[in-house]
Design a protein around this nucleic acid. Sequence first.
DNA 1: CTTCTCCG
Length: 806
Amino acid sequence: MENATLFDQSYVKGTIIRILFQNNDNFYTVLKAEVIDTNEDFDDEVTVTGFLPQIAEGDTYTFTGKIILHAKYGKQLQAEKFEKDLPQSKDGIIHYLSSDLFKGVGKKTARTIVEILGEDALNIILDDKSSLDQIPKLSQDKKDLIYNTINENQAIEKVMIQLNDWGFGPQLAMKIYQFYKDDTIRVIKESPYQLVMDIEGIGFNKADELARHIGIDNNHPERLKAALVYGMEQASLQNGHTYIPDQILLETSFNLLTKNGSEVNPDALVNALTELCEEKKLLVEHEKNIYIPSLFYSETKTVQILHRLMNHQEQLKQFEQSEIMLAIGEIEQLFEVSYAEKQKEALMQAMHSKLMILSGGPGTGKTTVVRGIVTLYAELHGLSLDYNDYDGQDFPIVVAAPTGRASKRLYESTGLEATTIHRLIGWTRDNKPDDILENEITAKLIIIDEMSMVDTWLMFQLMKAVPNDAQIIFVGDQDQLPSVGPGQVFKDLIESQIIPQIELNEVYRQQEGSSIVELAHQIKRNEPFDITKRYSDRSFIPCQTDQIPEVIEKIVTSAVNKGYDMRDIQVLAPIYRGNAGIRALNKVLQKILNPPEDKKREMEFGDVVFRNHDKVLQLVNRPEDGVFNGDIGEIVGIFKAAENALNKDVVIVDYDGNEVTYTKADLIEITHAYCCSIHKAQGSEFPIVIMPVVHQYFRMLQKNILYTGLTRAKQSLIFCGDVNAFNDGIKRLGNARFTSFYQFLMDYFSTDDQKDIVKNDSDTDENKENEVFKKLPFQVGEMTEENMHLVSPMINMGDISPYDYV
DNA sequence: CTTCTCCG
């Protein structure tokens, strides 16, 4: 989005010739217009795209937005604002009012209207219908007709313009309009806070600003509720909690409500929370834990499904131990590997577990074992792993992961058609997290990799799609970065120990005696270590923050002199901004590793220059080209439009032999990769990793981030910066997440009564199950007069933080 | 302060 400001605002005034495409759900429109006026060099015709209302061919509009280069269709205007040209002149209005749109209104009446109401007649009528009373000899029918017709033609646009004035962008404005339709302006004026509840992407602050403008009371229940709901959403979406204790919610909401100096009554806030729970907009459990309902349902329902699946254990085909061992031996020969004891144990376990967890840090051989499991399963069940042999029949094994890139790696390691979990279960853009998706997975063996990245909603949706007769294996590393979405599903699942689990903890990837591995283990086990101690494969170069670029330059130069090339060297930093941030370092590194030369081609995009042989990082999934978010490649060609068949400026990027073509507009999808974020590097490894660590990164200096970064190094690890920043960071656990999945698992799997409920539940059909989903699977404490005292008013809450509760 | 998926 930041790039948007790099482009000047462009406008086109034009008459619509043809509407090429319009999506009726969101009004995404592509149209051709004849140019009347523009500040761009469009010829007589222009293609305009945007979220536009039902606009008619023949109408004249002024579109404002930015010029983009579409891969297929070339230069077009992406409209952010649009305005219909109302007839401006008296003649224009007369012509308009006497047109076919206004049946029964003749030239004479039209002229009278303009004479009396003036050039602004149309707007005057729209603002106040009774202004037509001034027109003599006009029947009520005609007044209605004139008003309604102008209104229908203008309603959406007026709403959009008003929303625009209030500061909403075009897509958001259309989303708001879609929700409230003609009531938009009324609803917002009456209760702008409704936006926080109804429209994703509108926060409390935005609504509050609007509300102050309109003059809504500081203690208005809607205001208080909005702050509470927003506080909940922040807690879940920003901090990853699936619930928060009421006191924390009350405190954060109170701070939010009063930060602009307005006074808020704490009792009123507590009442607002009670009401929200009564209205089921929020849930309260254990009389103090507050949930967004969909997260509560996801956690509880996932527990039930896991339990139900465990109860279908008997459907698994059992094999003799000797038979499995024999097959494992064959596979060892086939792949020319020799499995360690723990790995063999994992293979055995996988053959007779309904549900199983396979965990382990980087380099412990999870991939090897997964490949082994697939082959062993096929061998024992006498199945072919060739898709051609199935011809329309369901393939018995499915492998999936939460990200596109992880699924690509799964494909590479297993040879199976791996997908993202979302694709597997049919989760599309339009689905909300608690929608009930109908897709059922048809495979008998389901393997999910990178489980640490699965959040609470995705876990529920996934489990919902698992059939009773399937086996499922969860694979992952609980020490990696937590899921983006709420929860810590994998960690909770492991800690509950309700599922058989094998942890691989021997490292095969790095050589024995590697001090990098040793460091990783020490960090993992909270053992003391000296980060400044020099080893052959690891060191820490102390320096100031502003020396970072210079120090990195020295390290890289010396590595290059030793014969390493840029693909071997990866600089990892946690943040983009600042003089030691990713962006700044990329500029420095490009200069060293790929300096400009006379004949070396370049293409500018925004404030970066892409140069032939640049190392680049893909930022979004492009499954059709086999490139995924996080893939690193090298620019191998830059061509001008005149030089190629596409007739467009293009950049060619090579991803390990897979060459992908980017038009100029596509360049938004890539960035320089000399330095990349630690988050993006998760799942990759590099011979040499250089990690600057300085206080500037303060917020991001946390144990699992540092751990993830340093474990990317295969041969050599070089830190630079502030030793204290590292040592402080390694002690910080990031924000601990409040989740109840673990507790629900423990409760549910230990009580016989509940097991009975689940058995009955599993016998019922889908509809019944959906019914159960709507009800509360656990007894939920509602806030009543009797237990109100348990929700403490906001006394002495100044110093409470989530850390006090964990 | 960073991170994911979904395709109109």
